[in-house]
Computed example of a mutant assay.
Amino acid sequence: MKLFVALLAVGLPALAAAHSWIVCTDYLENNGWYWDAAKCRAWPRNAEKYNLRDRQFGTAGGDANGFVHRLDDHPELTPLCNDPRDDATSYELPMAAYYLGQKVVLTHPINNHANDPRCDIRGRADTQNLMFVVDGDEDPCCINSTKLIQIMDMGVSPYGWYSDQFSEEVLRTYPKVGFQNAPKFCEDPEDAMGTYNFTIPMDLKPGRNTFVWKWIRNPAVNPFTTCWEADVFATKAERDAHYLATGRTTEDMWDFYQVNNIVDGVIMDPIDPVDPIISG
C-alpha cells in the first residue's frame, strides 16, 4: 500500500501540470519564443490578484487552483469564468482594447502539454481551441450557453502516438496551429510560452465585450476557460487614441518568424524590411 501511495505521489505533478490559462490578452509578438511581460498590453480578469505579470510564467498564483479554471464534473452547470465579472475591480492591470479586423495575440503556458521529437515527447492530444464573444453584459451560465458566439476556431496541433501519423519534421516545425505553438517547449516543458492569434470580426458591435477562450486537450478532460473584457473600436485610429490615453504603445503586432531569419531553430539575423518604393 505504501508503495502504491508513493507511486501515486510521483505521478501527481505530471497530471496536475496538464492545464493552462490565458496570461496576456494583447501581446505584441506573434509566434514568439520567450515570454516578456513588457510586450503585454492587456490582461484577463483579476490578473493582479493572481499576480500573472510578475510571477514566473506558467505558475498561476492565487489560492487553491489559482487562475486555472477547468469546468470539472458538469461543464453544463459549472460557471464559465473563474471570477465573476466586475469591471470596476478586476482590471488593476489594464483591460484590452481591440479594433475591428485586428489580429490579437494571446499567450499561455504550455504546462507539459505539447509534442516535439527533439525532447522525445509525442502523443499529447489537442482537441479544441475556440474563441467566443458573449452576447450581452452578463456572464453566461455555462459552456453550453446560447449567449456564447463563436468567433474563431484556432485549430488543433498535430500529434500522434505512432510515427506514421505525423512525421518528426511536422512535429518539430513551428509555428503551429492550436495549443502547442510553443517553439521553445523542449527548453522548458513546464513553463514554455505558447501563443495563439485570433481576428476580431468586422461585424462585431463596437463597445465593451466579454471574450472567452476554451481549450479541450482531449475528450476525456473537461474544458479549460479564461474570460476577459475588451473595449472594441471601429477603427485602429480610435483604438490607438485609447491606448495613448491610457499610457500604452500603439505599435502594431509583429510576427517573430517574419522579422528573424531562422535556420534549424537558430536565429541567424533579423530580416531587413523591404522598401516599398524601391521594390516598386
Rank of each mutant, 00 (worst) to 15 (best):
L3D: 12
F4H: 10
V5P: 00
V5A: 13
A6Y: 14
L8R: 03
A9C: 14
A9G: 14
A9I: 15
G11P: 00
L12S: 12
A16S: 14
A18S: 12
T25V: 11
D26R: 11
D26G: 05
Y27N: 04
E29N: 10
G32Q: 11
D36T: 09
D36C: 12
A38C: 05
C40R: 05
W43E: 00
W43V: 06
P44R: 07
R53N: 12
R55S: 09
G58D: 03
G58R: 03
T59Y: 13
T59R: 06
T59A: 08
A60W: 09
G62H: 08
D63K: 11
N65L: 15
L71N: 04
D72C: 06
H74R: 14
L77Q: 12
L77V: 07
D86E: 11
D87H: 13
A88M: 09
S90A: 15
A96W: 04
A96D: 01
A96E: 01
Y98H: 09
Y99E: 03
Y99C: 01
Y99K: 03
P109L: 07
P109N: 04
N112I: 08
H113W: 15
D116T: 00
R118Q: 13
R118V: 07
R122H: 00
G123H: 00
R124D: 00
N129E: 01
L130A: 06
M131T: 04
M131N: 03
D135K: 15
D137G: 04
D139G: 02
P140H: 06
C142L: 05
N144M: 08
N144W: 06
L148G: 07
L148H: 10
L148T: 07
I149C: 04
Q150D: 05
I151G: 09
D153P: 11
P158Y: 08
Y159S: 02
Y159A: 02
Y162D: 11
S163E: 12
E169Y: 10
L171W: 02
L171I: 02
Y174Q: 02
K176P: 00
V177Y: 10
V177N: 12
G178Y: 01
F179K: 02
N181F: 00
N181H: 02
P183K: 02
P183R: 01
K184R: 15
K184E: 13
K184V: 11
C186M: 08
E187Q: 14
E187L: 15
E187D: 15
P189L: 10
E190P: 00
G194A: 14
G194W: 06
T195E: 09
I200R: 06
D203H: 13
D203G: 12
T210E: 07
T210A: 07
W213T: 10
W215S: 05
I216E: 07
R217H: 13
R217D: 14
V221F: 07
N222A: 15
N222L: 09
N222S: 14
P223D: 03
E229N: 13
D231H: 10
F233P: 04
A234L: 14
A234Y: 12
K236Q: 13
A237I: 03
E238D: 14
Y243A: 01
L244T: 13
A245Q: 11
G247K: 06
R248L: 14
R248V: 10
T249R: 10
T249E: 06
T250S: 12
E251A: 15
D255N: 15
F256L: 07
Y257Q: 03
V263Y: 13
G265M: 09
V266P: 02
M268H: 09
D269I: 02
D269K: 14
I271E: 00
I271Q: 03
P276H: 11
P276R: 11
I277T: 11
S279F: 06
